[in-house]
Write a protein that binds this DNA or RNA. Sequence first.
DNA 1: ATTTAGCACTCTCGGCATGCGAGTGCAAAA
DNA 2: TTTTGCACTCGCATGCCGAGAGTGCTAAAT
Lengths: 350, 350
Amino acid sequence: MPRTTKDSVLNERALHLFKTLVERYIVDGQPVGSRTLARDAGLDVSPATVRHIMADLEAWGLIRSPHTSAGRMPTVQGYRLFVDTLLTLQELNANEVNRISSEFDCKQDVASLLQTASTMLSNITHLAGVVMLPRTEQKSLRRVEFMRLSGDQVLVILVVNDNEVQNRIIRTARPYSPAELQEAANYLNQSFSGKDLQSVRAAIVKEMQEVHADVNRMMQAVIEMAEKAFAADDRPHDYVLAGQTNLMEIADLSDLEKLKKLFEAFGQKRDILHLLDQAIQARGLQIFIGEESGYEVLDECSVVTSPYTVGDQVVGVLGVIGPTRMAYERVIPIVDVTAKVLGAALNSRH
Amino acid sequence: MPRTTKDSVLNERALHLFKTLVERYIVDGQPVGSRTLARDAGLDVSPATVRHIMADLEAWGLIRSPHTSAGRMPTVQGYRLFVDTLLTLQELNANEVNRISSEFDCKQDVASLLQTASTMLSNITHLAGVVMLPRTEQKSLRRVEFMRLSGDQVLVILVVNDNEVQNRIIRTARPYSPAELQEAANYLNQSFSGKDLQSVRAAIVKEMQEVHADVNRMMQAVIEMAEKAFAADDRPHDYVLAGQTNLMEIADLSDLEKLKKLFEAFGQKRDILHLLDQAIQARGLQIFIGEESGYEVLDECSVVTSPYTVGDQVVGVLGVIGPTRMAYERVIPIVDVTAKVLGAALNSRH
DNA sequence: ATTTAGCACTCTCGGCATGCGAGTGCAAAA
DNA sequence: TTTTGCACTCGCATGCCGAGAGTGCTAAAT
């Protein structure tokens, strides 16, 4: 009886051949034929045998050929298996890690740290690097200041976390005098300085509900403004992208049409942000291969991400975007290390 | 005697044919042959006559053919002549102008105004839009605030122009107490509130030179900090780019290699900024055609720019970047109007 | 039962000739 | 000065051919 479909088992040898095939395909991008594979695998079997096994692998959905009489290349499921169970990572040595972390040392502010991380990812991997802005949950209020602009507009300046300044413009129900504003600020600074921004907001909301008409005019002003000023800091997520142009010279994506769609997605940011949001939930290195991501523009891409932490809070995620045919064994450690180093750098500047 | 090179004169008819040729080339991108041109020009002459004239135009360096037996297309000099003296602009009607300016109405802050302008330019023209950030010369100080961070680091918060907040971190010669900082801020606010930032700086530098040892400790502190805090706001210029992807589907630039170089230049920002800087000097609508710009990456591109003003101060420049073969007669009015509308929008928010 | 060798078959790709269409330039006629 | 006629040049699409690479199947060998 011929080994038709899946009556065969994926034994050691088949997996070894599969792994060799993927590795080979990743380095030179050509579908791999039986002869090449037989030679590469170092197994001392004939191409004919390899052909049999390749037929099995194809039946298992791990490889496919673009057309008759071309070699085979991995399917998405194939990459998945490869990445999950067969990959031998090329860990970075201490030297390389040092070179990476030294890049961060001279940077001052958060923005340039992120920029550096993104650029570095793209430079080392020759792919596109992406770093999502940190969502700091812990923002401790250091000082608040109100300044009247015109009519009912008030400029609010919040100093948080020792060295970060936020400012927003709010509209108030009625115009307040500078004196009133000063007093309101004083009250808030006294009561809440050093407190977490979230809890300040909570306290204010609570106070709003408790005190009704029996509150004096001043207190009303304070509460009204504070409520608006501390409204959740929900500016949309954002990311820093570097080295998109690297993707332009990758043969797999050379279809201008697709490339354009991809670049537009980078510009829109929406889809990419959704994906990064998913990745951040995962609390660990995450790999999206081809269509797995669920976004059509990323059909021919893989995304390798890792969250980065400050303290032990996950605050953001970074990674690289490249063709499905990427050197995972190199890229994964790089993303991993970069996330750790960025986390450390952010931590020390805190 | 045959009309060999430049013994012929560029008469009315020759110019008319040339103009027709350019217009035709701009719409369909194909080299224009004598037959087509004879038909298009509406002149009732035979293709042969047109051929003679085309030979003249070629001798004058206005057109060239990519190879024997292809039609002719404009040279850079040809475009220059066309743009300078032959172009019939397609002015926008009031309706379109309104549609443009209404886009700006709902925007709050400067950043989103610029973003809107850039996006709009790219949407209307189907090219890349670029808007340089305004360099406001007139920054009147409204309020200054110092806040001690750690050791010799001081956070400076400057409120300028009614609603813009700048903050910088400076290092001082010695640690100052909160009280000292407060006093310094008070002094500066009293003396300089409402003054222009430049002149504040000048006054401080002057004071530094005049008063030496006979100044009290307090005054020294004030001067030291102020000098640093008001150091010229020389963050590098920057711009907002939109619709780069439009450039990807333009046949003229379909060379991936060139396109990559161009996109990298967009990322680096350096060359583009230099060019915009030149454009801002020019005080008026400016067109760089192909190699005229002097930047190799822009060899196959044209850039149409116009400065925009607040009050009657030129504060920035905006424009579009596209292939040399662009619809100048449409693009020029669009850039022009957008610059005016953006200026007006910035003005009203001032 | 597995592995190997042999073989016919399929598909891609580069090179090559060919013909067509578009356009030119020149010389002679109008 | 303009037009006509004509020979000539390219670029480009088409079709053909052969080389190369790889497959699947069958039959033989281990």
